[in-house]
Amino acid sequence: METLFACCIGFLTACGVFLMLRGRTFPVVLGLTMLSYAVNLFLFSSGRLTLRGAAVLGTTEQYADPLPQALVLTAIVIGFAMTAFLVILAIRARADLGNDHVDGKLPESELSKKESR
C-alpha cells in the first residue's frame, strides 16, 4: 500500500510540475491543481497509513492520527479558494492582455507564425 501511495504522489507531483512549466495559463492552473492534490495526499500520509483505524480513541485497537486529517481539510479548503481565484485571474489576464500566455505576450516563434499567415 505504501509503495502504491508513494508512486501516486510522485506521479501527481511530476505531472503538476510538468504542467506548471508550460507557457499558457490553463496548463499552469491544472498543474497547480495536480500539485495541490499531491500535497494533500502527502500531508495525509504524514500521520502514517492505517487500515480500519478510527480517529477516535477507544473505539478500535488501532487508531489513526487525527491531526493530519484536520490539516488536510484546511489545506483542501485553502487550495480550492486559491484555485478559484487563479482561474478568475487567468480569465482576466486573457481579457486584459489579449492572449493567454503567462508572460502576457506571445513568444517570438508564435508571433512570426502569426505574421506570415
Partner: peptide, 27 residues
C-alpha cells in the same frame, strides 16, 4: 494583471512546498 499572474502562481507553488515540508516535519 500581468504582475499578479506571476505573483499568484509563484506563491501558490510556495504554499505547496510549504505543505510538503510541514508534512515531512510532522511525520
Amino acid at each position: 494583471t500581468k504582475a499578479a499572474v506571476h505573483y499568484v502562481v509563484l506563491n501558490l507553488t510556495g504554499s505547496a512546498i510549504f505543505l510538503f515540508s510541514l508534512a515531512v516535519l510532522y511525520g
